[in-house]
Design a binder for these strands. Sequence first.
RNA 1: GCACCUGUAGCUCAACUGGAUAGAGCACCGGACUACGAAUCCGGAGGUUGUAGGUUCGAAUCCUACCAGGUGUACCA
Length: 652
Amino acid sequence: MSILQTLKSRFASALSSLSDDTGPLLEMIRSSQDPKFGDFQANCAMPLGKRLGKSPREIAAEIVENLDVSDFCETPEIAGPGFINLRLKDDWIAERVSSIAGDDRLGVTPAAKPRHVVVDFSSPNVAKPMHVGHLRSSVIGDAICRTLRFAGHKVTSDNHIGDWGTQFGMIIYGYRNFVDAAAYSRDQVAELARLYKLVNQLSDYHAAKAGLPELRLQLDQRQQELDQLTSDSEPADKKAKKKLKAQRKAVEETRSSIESAEAKVAHVDTDAPLAAQANEHPDIARLARQETSKLHAGDEQNQQLWDEFLPACLAALDQIYSRLDVRFDLALGESYYNPMLADVVSDLRAKGLATDSDGAACVFIEGNNAPFIVQKTDGAYTYATTDLATIQYRLDELHADEIVYVVDKRQSEHFSLLFKTCELWGFGDVKCQHVSFGTVMGDDGKPFKTRSGDNVELGSLIDEAIARARSVVDENDDRREQPALTPDGRARVAQIVGTGGIKYADLHHNRDSDYVFDWDKMLATTGDTATYMQYAYARICGIFRELNVDRQKIASGKTTVLLTCPEERALALQLTQFDYAVDAVLADYRPNQLTSWLFDTAGKFSVFYAHCSVKKAESPELQQSRLILCDLMARALSTGLSLLGIETADVM
RNA sequence: GCACCUGUAGCUCAACUGGAUAGAGCACCGGACUACGAAUCCGGAGGUUGUAGGUUCGAAUCCUACCAGGUGUACCA
């Protein structure tokens, strides 16, 4: 039983005479924020005071009177308004950490009721290079999978690849009209990506050009309305003020839409060959969409092209995943569900959930203005339809207990509609959760792009991370009297530090936050970074090398830990709480709970390292004890980091 | 217009979902290597948690209003 569970059960009996409903009160037992208040604190006396009409301190005294924790705690102290502070006995911590030192699961007991969780993440579109948004989904999703598995759950990681959407029509159209045969045979994926981008650009060009007159008209109109508002003397009441502000904003918005449309048009117009292509393909957007519907309708030629394009696109994705060490159990793309879509819609219609509106089949959910469109006017299905079919499949075929979607938070409305539709549809017994994450921003506060406005490709991002890591590795190793690494070793460390840095930078933020992408921060080797922990790990390995001790023997032998100073005690106590960190991650799928535990732990180790020499320990017993702590620490780091998909190296 | 989200140190972010004096890391200033690895450690400075009210023993967290910003909003995924 964990420390917290033990405490809770003791408090449950101490509280039973004071309250009928002890559950919420027991939730108020937690580890202390400040070590000077002890190791754990119970805050339940305060709310009880109100309820029982006594002073909270009196209640606290009664609780302490009833409480029997003397076997593992010092005498409880009552502080402030009625906090009960608990300090664990040193020998009890020593015993606890000794037992964890002999446990390869580091004190984490496997889930009592394992669930089958399908984790849906990454979900890139083929032929569109992956970017930092996919990085977040991939890294967070992978960490969730690893942590769930470690906790004893069954996990199916599924990459819901976008291989059936509108972009495929664009590629097909591009291939038919603009393919560069030499480039295509040289690098198929790169050429397809170029074609996608080209068709997209030309479509945008025509759309922007066509929309400009309307936009300019709108601007004039809005400007006039604004002038009218401002001429009506000073805005008298708040409402008028608000209206004025909204109007100003509307004018600004229209103006920036015009600017962006003009930029798109100018970009093509100033590029003669591009402009010529644009002129030759005035109806490109519609024709590209037509290719998509032909594909969906079973057109043989388009299907052939699809079959030809897909393998290379998937291989390109796999290459990235292998560099990131992200694995999927399934990669059923959207195309996989195509045969099921018609049935989904007809079933929804039969159940009266889907109705026609403006020619599209829609599910209307009470309280939401936007409909959930399951079939478009032209008969094509949408990603809503696919998502429904996917849930059905995961329930009927995979027998999932829970489905987790690691997707950008901007899609929260879609998922809210999806889950509600599902419930009405009769698939309410699976727990669906949208694990949302924020946007990666550039230093201008806008979504992270390259200077030319393109998404930053994931492959080049990884390259850059490893290259930067390499220069740090070189610099450090060159500074030594005798380099500790071979060139191959350096490359290996650079790979571990570089990719670890990228992942950690993402994971240590609260996933819901938008965060600013910054190379220097991402690959900083100081502070709250993967490197800090990887370095701590390498230092421990250094101790074992220095003393010529086999770590295997330490872990498998008799593990008796002595706590002789505050630094040892703090580290030992921290190491007994790995299970909380794992629980905290899984409670709401927040990997940053684990990163902060790891950082705290590594920090406590660094203090221990500075104060408590293993090599010069006062006695052989103490040296043995410290070796045990070091080994446990190393395993905590490597295990904890591995749950985040981050590797460690013995030498760096 | 409607809906949702955010506002915390100069910067980037935490805060165990209502607990004690709001914490880290960068950056800044000052210390510690004849070394179990300085990719480290120790110390300093830095805050009216957007503003104003309210709820209560107790508020960054809950409620109300305002201010500032973001996102989504019918056939892209």
